[in-house]
């Protein structure tokens, strides 16, 4: 098709398109030429996006080197300090990781991270309904399992492993979970 090779607008210097400076080829007047340039540049932009995703993926690899926590045992509370149906807050494994210890019956203790898995808001115990409530976006977790039951959270709360020795509750490890 002759039309496709024909320049609709002639350049001021009269030279053909391939002899024009780059800026003039990148900013054409004709619609077909502009469409070509726009799609080509969009393809380049998508490759740049691909680079960003690959960098994000490598960043996760980098983080995974530092996220493997060595379990350190820490005293939480005496068994008598937590009444049945009540919860106490503590921090584990560092002082920046808030958690909740819940006593559900005489012998049953559960502990979870109290940071919502949606956007890290602190969850509140609502033990009369056997659940944990995140007030930021109305997320709910089952107090018995830590799994999400309603709202935006999709992952369960990290479970804190406990050990009870001579009337004292100790936190021994953190278990991150996806299901």
């Amino acid at each position: 098709m002759e039309y496709e090779n024909t320049q609709l607008t002639t350049f001021p210097d009269g030279l053909p398109e391939h002899e024009q400076p780059k800026w003039r080829r990148d900013f054409p007047i004709d619609v077909p030429a502009d469409e070509y340039g726009a799609r080509r540049d969009f393809t380049k932009f998508m490759v740049l996006t691909s680079l960003a995703f690959a960098c994000g993926q490598l960043w996760i690899v980098f983080l995974s080197f530092f996220r493997r926590r060595a379990p350190v045992e820490k005293r939480i509370a005496a068994v008598t300090d937590v009444k049945i149906g009540q919860a106490v807050s503590f921090h584990y494994p560092t002082d920046r990781d808030p958690c909740l210890l819940i006593r559900q019956s005489e012998d049953v203790f559960q502990a979870y991270s109290s940071q919502c898995t949606h956007l890290m808001c602190p969850v509140r115990p609502d033990l009369t309904h056997n659940r944990l409530h995140c007030p930021c976006h109305e997320g709910y977790f089952d107090a018995a399992t830590g799994r999400p039951t309603a709202g935006p959270p999709r992952r369960p709360l990290p479970r804190i492993h406990l050990r009870i020795d001579r009337g004292v509750v100790y936190a021994t490890a953190v278990e991150d979970r996806t299901l």
Binding site: I60, T117, R155
Partner: peptide
């Protein structure tokens, strides 16, 4: 891949 990996990573699956 990025979203699935991030979800798995935050869930403790390294």
């Amino acid at each position: 891949l990025l979203t699935a990996t991030m979800n798995a990573f935050l869930g403790g699956n390294h």
